[in-house]
Amino acid sequence: MPAPDRTSLDEIVAAGRSIVEAHGLDGLTMQAVAGRVGVRAPSLYKRVRNRGALVELVAEATVRDLARRLGEAAPVDGDPRAELAALARALRAFAHERPVAFGLVFAPGGGGVSQALLAEASAPVLRVATSLVGEADALSAARTVTAWANGFVTMELSGAFRLGGDVEAAFEYGVERIAESLAISVSEH
């Protein structure tokens, strides 16, 4: 009779996500995860091929979590400008809660996350962008919004806003101006 499993893949990934936030990506080791879930490191290899696969699983779980939060942030039948602001705020809140994992998924290579999962996470932003600018320009608009929000949040998290002023107000200013400019651009066409 085989020995009972002492951990699950979900527990391993949850432990990995917790370790990443507490100790950074370098702290994510098979040994650290094994200790967190109460098994010896060799036992993890039954579920996870290697550390690279573990990093991918953490990145995928992060993107799924972000996709869920973005999907919940903006109602489908609301004002697209308000929806865009809600999405940007949800992204920012997520980044503040999980700054290391956020950095991982927005870094070059994105932690190895699949195109299908990225498309799922992007769907709410694309939907709102389509409402604002139309189908032909939706991808460009979604990329513009995402790049601005990611840049703002990355600078905020790294402490790069050192000239004083209210960072919260600056974020809201940016969200409002981007939403207004996208809505104006569609009305001009």
Results as ranks from 00 to 15, higher is better:
residue 96 H to I: 11
residue 110 G to W: 11
residue 166 D to L: 06
residue 95 A to F: 07
residue 102 F to T: 07
residue 92 R to Q: 09
residue 140 S to K: 14
residue 98 R to H: 14
residue 102 F to I: 03
residue 170 A to D: 15
residue 62 T to D: 11
residue 61 A to D: 14
residue 144 T to G: 14
residue 120 E to V: 07
residue 172 E to G: 00
residue 53 A to G: 13
residue 150 N to P: 04
residue 155 M to D: 14
residue 100 V to A: 09
residue 54 L to A: 03
residue 89 R to V: 03
residue 122 S to W: 09
residue 143 R to F: 10
residue 153 V to L: 12
residue 75 P to L: 04
residue 124 P to N: 02
residue 88 A to Q: 08
residue 158 S to L: 14
residue 134 G to R: 08
residue 84 L to W: 00
residue 85 A to D: 08
residue 127 R to P: 03
residue 113 V to I: 06
residue 166 D to Q: 11
residue 156 E to P: 12
residue 152 F to H: 03
residue 120 E to I: 02
residue 107 A to H: 10
residue 87 L to K: 00
residue 94 F to Y: 14
residue 52 G to K: 15
residue 67 A to T: 08
residue 162 R to W: 10
residue 121 A to Y: 00
residue 169 A to N: 07
residue 53 A to S: 15
residue 117 L to A: 03
residue 112 G to N: 10
residue 102 F to P: 05
residue 131 S to G: 14
residue 83 E to S: 10
residue 137 D to M: 12
residue 100 V to F: 05
residue 115 Q to I: 12
residue 144 T to P: 11
residue 148 W to K: 00
residue 69 R to M: 01
residue 136 A to P: 06
residue 94 F to E: 01
residue 135 E to M: 06
residue 85 A to K: 04
residue 113 V to A: 06
residue 100 V to G: 04
residue 79 D to K: 05
residue 136 A to H: 12
residue 108 P to L: 03
residue 77 D to I: 05
residue 75 P to S: 10
residue 56 E to F: 02
residue 62 T to S: 13
residue 96 H to Y: 10
residue 54 L to S: 02
residue 97 E to W: 02
residue 102 F to C: 02
residue 165 G to S: 04
residue 77 D to S: 06
residue 91 L to C: 10
residue 69 R to V: 02
residue 121 A to N: 04
residue 151 G to A: 09
residue 73 A to K: 03
residue 150 N to A: 08
residue 148 W to E: 02
residue 160 A to P: 01
residue 98 R to I: 04
residue 130 T to D: 10
residue 122 S to I: 08
residue 159 G to Q: 12
residue 81 R to W: 07
residue 175 V to Y: 00
residue 147 A to G: 12
residue 107 A to E: 12
